[in-house]
Design a protein around this nucleic acid. Structure first.
Length: 690
DNA sequence: GAGTTTGAAACT
DNA sequence: CAGTTTCAAACTC
């Protein structure tokens, strides 16, 4: 896993939050980080721990826009910075990354082809205090008339884009920002974007030993690609100002870490009156760019081809049951490459206050994966949408299509309490998704941009992990959602931000480092990038599974799942405690008899037979959840009081009905709860070794 | 490891 | 809502 130096990492949250600030920092080179050149083909498979460096979030773009973007943009060595309606931002350091629109994408107007080719920007960047990104000395090779070297300013009012890069040089940054606004017809042009919240794009970590070549390529609603040098076009477009300032060092010189902050205020589409929620979304991109090395791109979308097994549907299910208010569970299921995305028929409207995310994988071969946006209309269908309502206060409807089959990560939260996140690293072979055509794009394969493209939703997975322990107490989005942080490493996830009104107002309260990105197309959905801290479970290797594609290959497999903290329990408590495996035989683990199910968890390493408490039986599972909630809306709420450790209020909420055990055995839930309390409060916690 | 006990969950 | 059945964990041997 690439690790961002603690120093840098520590800087992130603030920077992210501060859209206005322009940060140019030269950080001392990290000893650990050594520029590595990677072959595209051999692009190292991210290790489990490895965090994708680049995340691109692409917003759904109208077909026409896409096509234009694709056509107009051609990868060239010249630096190119184009910002379209603000949906996408592409930064690629290395040489031409010809982005080849996949045929499939072409065939499918709606298919998510997002960004044009990655473009390399040779010109050094400069960041002006104006929040502008200036690409200097950019040769406009692209179809867009790149005007001379003059710094280009992209202006778009109301939008802000922040990109910071820390870390390894040579790695391209690709950002695709989803469109927050409702679909924008090309005709609408820039004007539609007024109410938009800001986009922040943060790229962290690029050591720039060499000149960083970066291209910023946002896809405008107008579907224009702008060369970095182009003033006029950009200005006309929504981007208010974009300056990229980068201090570049000579390669030979000690590596510098430069942070780029690109602020780009987007007025993405005017918020449709319908949705109270203004889509404020930002994609955050972390990239390591070393000029010399081809950019490494991590793409969520990988073809399943490598893995025989196909997951019926790639979904991210967040089960709201346990802690409704909490944001977050995302499960991503891979989809078989050829098969059309399978909509998950999850009839269930779960009243869980949590989000359900659906992730779909893009087709393996199509280059679109790299920066593909599925156009809203078609993509949406396949995507599963779940309405979560009910118990929890917050309700989200989230769909995430991801294009990462084997690597797919499932995040599922059945119960309201927990959010599950499964991080899966892309395997080498599968990584192809990134590169539409490796041959053409030398740069792309090496680069590891993660692009999640899907019509409706885009998800980015943790970009940066830092070893440093930075405890941040995230501010809850809403009163209810809390994220407990005791993380030793920071990872950031891009999660769907709820468009819901109740949440949005609170967006400002997001924990530092949180980036919100508007969901493309839908306008309702957004993504939030949360500091990894929020997800302690991820950090715990025990529960968090960074599954390699191989893991998926085994159908029977143990379902790896990440656990999320219990409600009311500190992460350390809940997360660190492994759950006992169940032994259910008749209940299919879909009844509350099953502790796993009752706790809103998937069965993992259990001894159960005929288990349906897994992603493979998500439909059944959801039905079961619904049934339980119908019987008892409180069914998934913790029975044991949330009282802090050691406090007396940690008692069973309902009480027991013990008759013969005298409440002195573990048959009694009250007794069990008290015993647990003791265990938790004990100075010498009896914890199972991980 | 098999069998028993127990009480929550599910069912009627 | 009460009674019964089902179920899986806890417990015993």
């Amino acid at each position: 896993m690439d690790v961002v130096s603690p120093e840098l990492n520590s800087l992130l949250p603030d920077e992210i939050m501060d859209t206005e600030a322009i940060v140019i920092e030269d950080l001392p080179p990290e000893p650990s980080m050594v520029p590595v050149q990677m072959e595209s083909e051999e692009a190292p498979v991210p290790m489990e721990t490895e965090v994708p460096e680049i995340i691109s979030m692409s917003t759904a773009v109208t077909p026409t826009q896409r096509t234009q973007a694709l056509t107009t943009s051609t990868s060239t060595d010249s630096a190119l910075c184009s910002i379209s309606s603000g949906t996408q931002l592409l930064l690629t350091p290395s040489s031409s990354t010809a982005f080849k629109p996949s045929t499939s994408s072409a065939a499918k107007p709606n298919s998510p082809v997002v960004s044009g080719p990655l473009q390399k920007v040779t010109a050094p960047f400069t960041i002006s205090a104006n929040h502008q990104i200036i690409l200097n000395k950019v040769a406009a090779s692209s179809a867009v008339d790149a005007k001379s070297s003059g710094a280009q300013v992209l202006k778009q009012e109301g939008q802000k884009l922040v990109v910071t890069t820390l870390g390894k040089a040579g790695q391209p940054i690709v950002l695709t920002l989803p469109h927050t606004g409702t679909k924008v017809s090309p005709a609408q042009g820039s004007g539609d974007t007024k109410a938009q919240p800001q986009y922040k794009v943060v790229t962290i970590g690029s050591r720039t030993d060499l000149k960083p070549v970066m291209g910023v390529q946002p896809v405008s609603t107008a579907s224009q690609l702008l060369g970095t040098s182009q003033h006029s076009t950009l200005q006309t477009q929504q981007l208010k100002t974009v300056q990229i300032a980068k201090k570049t060092q000579a390669s030979s010189t000690g590596p510098m870490i430069t942070k780029f902050i690109i602020t780009k205020p987007l007025n993405s589409k005017g918020v449709s009156g319908q949705t109270s929620v203004s889509p404020v979304i930002t994609g955050r991109v972390l990239s390591q760019s070393t000029p010399g090395t081809p950019p490494r791109t991590i793409t969520l979308s990988e073809t399943l081809s490598t893995t025989p097994q196909t997951i019926s549907s790639s979904k991210i299910a967040i089960s709201p049951l346990k802690s409704p208010s909490k944001l977050t569970v995302v499960s991503v299921a891979s989809q078989s490459p050829s098969s059309p995305q399978k909509s998950v028929a999850v009839p269930l409207n779960v009243a869980l206050g949590q989000q359900i995310l659906t992730v779909q994988q893009s087709t393996p071969t199509s280059p679109a994966k790299m920066v593909s946006n599925h156009s809203a209309p078609q993509a949406m269908k396949p995507v599963q949408t779940m309405a979560v309502g009910g118990v929890g206060t917050s309700q989200f409807k989230t769909i995430f299509p991801l294009a990462t089959p084997p690597n797919v990560q499932q995040i599922q939260v059945p119960g309201s309490r927990f959010h599950y996140v499964r991080l899966v690293t892309a395997t080498t072979g599968s990584s192809t998704g990134q590169t539409g055509s490796p041959s053409t794009n030398s740069a792309i394969p090496t680069a590891k941009p993660m692009v999640v493209n899907t019509a409706a939703v885009r998800m980015s997975v943790p970009i940066v992990s830092a070893q440093t322990v930075k405890q941040v107490v995230p501010k809850p989005l809403t009163s209810s959602p809390q994220v407990v942080t005791t993380s030793q490493t920071q990872q950031r996830l891009i999660m769907p931000a709820t468009p819901l009104p109740q949440i949005q107002p609170n967006l400002t309260n997001l924990p530092p480092g949180t980036v919100l990105a508007p969901a493309p197309g839908t306008g309702n959905m957004g993504y939030a990038v949360l500091p990894a801290q929020c997800f302690t479970q991820l950090q715990q290797s025990t529960f968090v599974t960074l599954a390699s594609s191989s893991s998926f290959s085994t159908p029977t497999g143990v379902q790896s799942q990440a656990r999320l903290p219990l409600n009311g329990l500190s992460t350390s408590d809940s997360a660190s405690r492994p759950r006992k495996p169940c032994n259910c035989t008749k209940s299919q683990c879909l009844k509350l008899y099953c502790d796993c199910f009752a706790n809103g968890e998937f069965c993992n390493n259990c001894n159960c037979t005929n288990c349906f408490n897994n992603l493979e039986h998500e439909t059944e599972r959801l039905k079961a959840i619904k049934a339980c909630l119908d019987r008892n809306p409180e069914a998934f709420k913790p029975k044991i009081g949330k009282g802090k450790e050691g406090e007396s209020d940690r008692r069973h909420s309902k009480g027991c009905n013990c008759k013969r055990s005298g409440c002195l055995k573990n048959y009694c839930e009250c007794y069990e709860a008290s015993a647990e309390t003791i265990r938790l409060t004990s100075p010498l916690p009896l914890r199972l070794p991980v």
